[in-house]
Design a protein around this nucleic acid. Sequence first.
DNA 1: TTGTAAGCGTTATCAC
DNA 2: GTGATAACGCTTACAA
Lengths: 341, 341
Amino acid sequence: MRKKRFSHANPSIGIRDVARHAGVSPMTVSRALREPDKVSAEMRRRVEDTVHQIGYLRNRIAGSLSSNRSNVVGLILPSVHNSLFAHTVQGISDVLRTSGHHLMIADSGYSLADEEEAIDAFLQQRVCGMVLHNTKHTERTRALIGRGGVPVVEIGNLTPHPLDTTVSYSNYEASRTMTLHLARLGYRRIGFVTLPLQDNERSIERRRGYLAALAELGMREDPRLVLEMPPGIGSGAEAIVRLVEIDGGLDAVFFAGDVLVVGAAVECHRRGWAVPARVAIATFDDLDILRYISPTITSVRIPRYEIGKRSAELLLDRANGSSTERQSVDLKFEIIQREST
Amino acid sequence: MRKKRFSHANPSIGIRDVARHAGVSPMTVSRALREPDKVSAEMRRRVEDTVHQIGYLRNRIAGSLSSNRSNVVGLILPSVHNSLFAHTVQGISDVLRTSGHHLMIADSGYSLADEEEAIDAFLQQRVCGMVLHNTKHTERTRALIGRGGVPVVEIGNLTPHPLDTTVSYSNYEASRTMTLHLARLGYRRIGFVTLPLQDNERSIERRRGYLAALAELGMREDPRLVLEMPPGIGSGAEAIVRLVEIDGGLDAVFFAGDVLVVGAAVECHRRGWAVPARVAIATFDDLDILRYISPTITSVRIPRYEIGKRSAELLLDRANGSSTERQSVDLKFEIIQREST
DNA sequence: TTGTAAGCGTTATCAC
DNA sequence: GTGATAACGCTTACAA
């Protein structure tokens, strides 16, 4: 016997209502909606008609509980705000949409503790998989994911010890390669501007790549030529001025990310410093604008959309059990040589 | 008698396990976790300890089904990719995080049909509210929302006939005001570059505002001075060239959104067209970069972060029943006068 | 303050 | 191909 509960404000139309109206069992309705092939053509039509008639809306919450499966993927970004991630999110979103999945986004505010909290929350929501931009995590995060039984893809860096699967590129190699590229072009005193290093494996790896290149080249590392700056256009402008003023011999600066280089380019223009004659500049992240401003700016191109796409694909493969192996997919990078170097 | 289902791969730890270990009833565990105040201090501690010990993870799916409440908000954007939305998403995200809610994002690809599909999906997921950027919708979308019983906030335009609540600014007024501003500065032949108008109330309203201003000023509307262009930097460059070449008397161009104006600025610089002497330029959306490039660019400033924040706040008020009235909140805009005009 | 019983709306299982 | 039944893991309502 079913009792009515008073609390439910929304006595919404359920699968049994559809069943009653169509004169079939709830189970048949459920089948007709989820696996139309396992139901006779006529039955399918009858159910679909009834659904439209009475305006039935499937309850995925109930479905998920019953089937112990969900169609929601969680994504954790250092910052929702940062437009660099937009391409990656689009890649993920595009894949999920075509397979009937949904995307939940949280930001970790560049803090490992916040990431942990977000992961905990996602696990409580029983997401079917997670994409993490970070590759550094708290102990408890690793523990949670370890026993969570939920597939995870890390995308910020091709880390040597992934939690599970990783789809990315090597920040170390990209940074090293660009530095070598600058040296090959003849630059001898190369400055480096990094984003905050705290808890950020990507920044740390980029700096490591820069230093490795210097070592290979037999160039002496000079701490005064390495600046740690917050993100932002103004930050890049400030950085180029400080570097040039510290060292008259400086002939190139590599900006390790964000829009720093845009500020630098503008500032050079403003001060009449010829680029690349007076100082060459290069950057990570092939922002659209780099191709348009004058001089056009040399950069590392990262396949951000592709990273989103592939990571979502692999995640879904793992989530539906069609693949069980952990992978490390290296999507590489390119050096785009332009006028600024 | 409870039968075991064979299908469940993850015989995860449930609330009854916690209850057993702690020597209390499941109900008490539930209370201790959701409403700690309604439980004795000692009981609270005992439950919390047990939770940590056995590694229990709340199942929100089950909770939502049972309570007929959810803590997930759905957001539908024309394009996830577009970085202009980043501020708004951040505003929403910040509010949701502090109140224990989650954000699900879908994109409608600038198509009303896709928006409808996304809304249908969100409703199936039983979101507790939705934020829509679009203000134009299909019939069925309106019907779905009408009977959905789920609060909705529209944010793209302060539309006169909102589905429910709206938090935005008037695209019409902003565009009109900027056009009047240009006229007041002495410009007499003002071109207008709009983003695609198809199904986009924002673009349509902006053009309407421009035309209204011309009428007020007694300036004749010239269809050749109105260009509809796709978004993108290159698009803006192309537009300025076409407009200047069409009409030698043109003395200003108002770019109605996106990064169009950046392309225009760069192109003017490249061709040696003095800004604003040869042609003045202005735009919607106070992108960071507009303050840095030379000349700095006049723009409409829209409180994007604030729109996200306020819309999330109102949505939650509606969702938890603490407010039942539909509102139209006008967050206004500002004209930022800079060197380009 | 704590416990008991019933049910949230669906799906897995197994029988027909 | 279709249906009956028992869960899924939690919360509501009410009793103690």
